[in-house]
Design a protein around this nucleic acid. Structure first.
Lengths: 405, 405
DNA sequence: CTGGCTTAGTTTTGTAGTCGAAGAAAGTGA
DNA sequence: TCACTTTCTTCGACTACAAAACTAAGCCAG
């Protein structure tokens, strides 16, 4: 199954947004929703009724009066339908189920060897999703402990899987769900993830780039009121996701945000997996930091080791982190001048690395138009390891909720 | 008068789009419009009737039959209402009136000394617009010859001015119409163009950056079917305009597209008017080329002289043009990777400079993701000197037509 | 030259989404 | 108890659009 177009009614009072307001606790009653959405009370009532009929919302008794009639409290049913989400990384994958409000119901992290190829890797992850979504998963599933919120509900299809969202650490043609020339995923080039998965699960499958999903997740959870935002994912690789006018911007080929092979000044310019030299990814990615440290004779096993060195104040590692921050800042400066977003947020495992963030900030302020940085927020992406699957779930839910109403 | 938000119904069958299809000749009958817009015949009929009542459209007899009833031909009335437009440049301004389809009715180029300050410059240009819009302007107006299409119509308010659009060669806060920290416009910082003009003409005034207007004009006339486009204006200064999802992207502060002070590699890095060194504008703008040639001891009076040298194959000038093209290409490569547009088009006086265009193209293909350049169009902006006022007029018409219907 | 087919456009009717006003429901507080 | 507030529903109206039926006006084949 392939999805061409994002639904239109996600924003400004669409059923999806009402759902989200209730889910986040921003709204508890119909009156709250009316105030938040700007829709008339009658319209809200009508939509809420539809959502209740779909089982996406329920009334949970009366709330506290504020001087008048008590509100009839609304909530997203717990234990109801869920969507599955996979956030594939270079060495690990985060797999989870989320309820239709976008809250994580179950999540676990699995080790992954991306070089095993798509069939094997995706096969294992799909099995894991199936296990999580199965009614009694919380008790029977093996592996990492996960918080069980799985009180199966009374009414019918409890925990039914409604869709699956997958994030890939490489370029994805969103329209077709196909992977195109990934630089760090041997054996995956041209693989049609959506088709592969659609053959194994009986629900809509949506595939997108991992940075896009992080962007969507972060925007929905932290910046939903902002129109234009840029999110950088700095982990083993480097990617970015773009929100334009409140919507994920994918560009002509769905390749928007792929800044990993932009050239930055670096001396010497390290060679990149893409064949060129001096790419952002070859200077500032986690993989690049590992390589650079090893080249200096410092033995590090992986990115975790590098981050530990930086946290410990190791001189070489810190210098490299600063250089990486500057490099990201350089590219981001062009992006900020060009795109003029309200917020730039950095996520991924390198986002917690203080020296990197500091020099990125400094470079941005130095190189951007004052007008562009005047009110610009430069932040860390908040929600941690679940931000990717959160974004994936939102993408799927947008599709599912829109389709049903 | 200040305009906060672009009207929403410009796209997909809005009255404005119907008008444009008729104006461009894409549609001649109601049936054509129905097919093009996807709207039902009844809706189109209704809208067309409204447009005719507003005097924005007229019936011009019957057309050729294609096997059935003959279509009733539609056309935009000539000599009807117009909007004024000013495209202010560093040394010249293009001033014109355009009919409500966006066609230029009258246009002329005036010399301008930007350093005379906003009151004097804008005062003169406003007077010129008033003269053009006056009923008998075509015969009485002085100055550069202009094609007179000014046959005043029969029905009532012939040639009435409905709005005014102004393009400024510097950063403009579109929401307020105020100029912010322009690097090349001494005495204009903080000036409220919209307020100044609104006090002198009795119609809505919309102010925007000149590159934005070029982008809008070029997109509407040449690429209206494309969703994402980037337009570079390379003249005395360098700017860009961005179309995202078919709409002008202005960003958080209305400063989007201002890439003039992005740093590029250049040795030696020439100082920029902004105080930094190595800015794109200091390397690749027309002003920079003039300065660089003079520094090499080659006497050139202005940009025209530089272009002539390049056309004559002068070695130094050509080398500089290539360097400028590379610099623009470098920045544009980041932009293309990040934004993934369907088209990148270059306009402004330097766009006709072959060596510059060639090295810009080469740099783009070298530095961008293959996926991003695979189907990317790299073009010259077509319409020449009227593209700026065309964009300005479109902006105004969008506002005026939407307001009236 | 007449009926069948095609294209063009209008009119009528219906539907979906939204708003606003009115009012019902259910409380607070003096 | 009564005035007032807040919450939520109901109902009528309006708008945008579409579907279908219909009128208008041509083509062409027999």
């Amino acid at each position: 199954m392939t999805i061409d177009e994002a639904p239109r009614d996600v924003l400004r009072g669409g059923p999806r947004e009402l759902l989200r307001w209730v889910a986040t606790g921003a709204a508890v009653s119909r009156a709250d929703l009316s105030r938040l959405s700007g829709l008339s009370p009658s319209t809200v009532s009508q939509r809420v009724e539809a959502l209740i009929n779909q089982g996406l919302l329920e009334e949970t008794g009366a709330g506290r009066s504020r001087g008048g009639r008590r509100p009839r409290q609304l909530a997203v049913p717990t234990g109801g339908a869920v969507v599955g989400a996979i956030d594939l990384g270079a060495h690990h994958a985060r797999v989870g189920t989320l309820d239709l409000s976008g809250r994580v119901v179950q999540g676990r992290t699995l080790p992954v060897r991306i070089e095993d190829g798509p069939e094997q890797v995706l096969g294992a992850l799909l099995a894991e999703v199936a296990a999580l979504a199965a009614p009694s998963s919380a008790s029977t599933a093996s592996g990492v402990a996960s918080p069980s919120t799985g009180s199966t509900t009374a009414d019918g299809a409890a925990g039914a899987l409604r869709g699956l969202g997958i994030g890939i650490p490489g370029p994805v043609q969103h329209a077709t769900g196909r992977i195109v020339s990934p630089s760090r995923m041997p054996g995956w080039n041209g693989f049609d993830v959506a088709a592969f998965c659609a053959g194994r699960v009986d629900v809509p499958v949506i595939v997108d780039n991992d940075a896009n999903l992080m962007a969507l997740g972060a925007h929905r959870t932290a910046h939903s009121e902002l129109d234009h935002a840029v999110y950088i994912k700095a982990g083993t690789g480097i990617g970015s996701g773009v929100i334009s006018s409140g919507r994920l911007h994918r560009g002509a080929q769905g390749a928007a945000g792929d800044i990993s092979h932009c050239r930055v000044v670096a001396d010497p310019a390290p060679p990149c997996t893409c064949g060129n030299a001096g790419c952002l990814e070859a200077v500032a990615s986690g993989a690049a930091l590992v390589t650079a440290l090893r080249d200096q004779g410092i033995p590090v096993s992986d990115l975790t080791g590098v981050i530990r060195l930086i946290d410990d104040g190791d001189r070489h590692a810190t210098a490299l982190a600063r250089q990486a921050g500057r490099a990201i800042g350089e590219i981001l400066a062009v992006v900020v001048n060009f795109f003029n977003p309200q917020v730039v947020a950095i996520g991924g495992r390198l986002a917690d690395c203080e020296p990197l963030l500091a020099s990125m900030r400094a470079t941005l302020y130095e190189r951007c138009l004052p007008l562009a940085t005047q009110t610009l927020l430069i932040e860390r992406v908040a929600t941690g390891q679940d931000i990717g699957i959160t974004g994936a779930a939102h993408l799927v839910i947008d599709h599912v909720v829109a389709a049903h109403s």
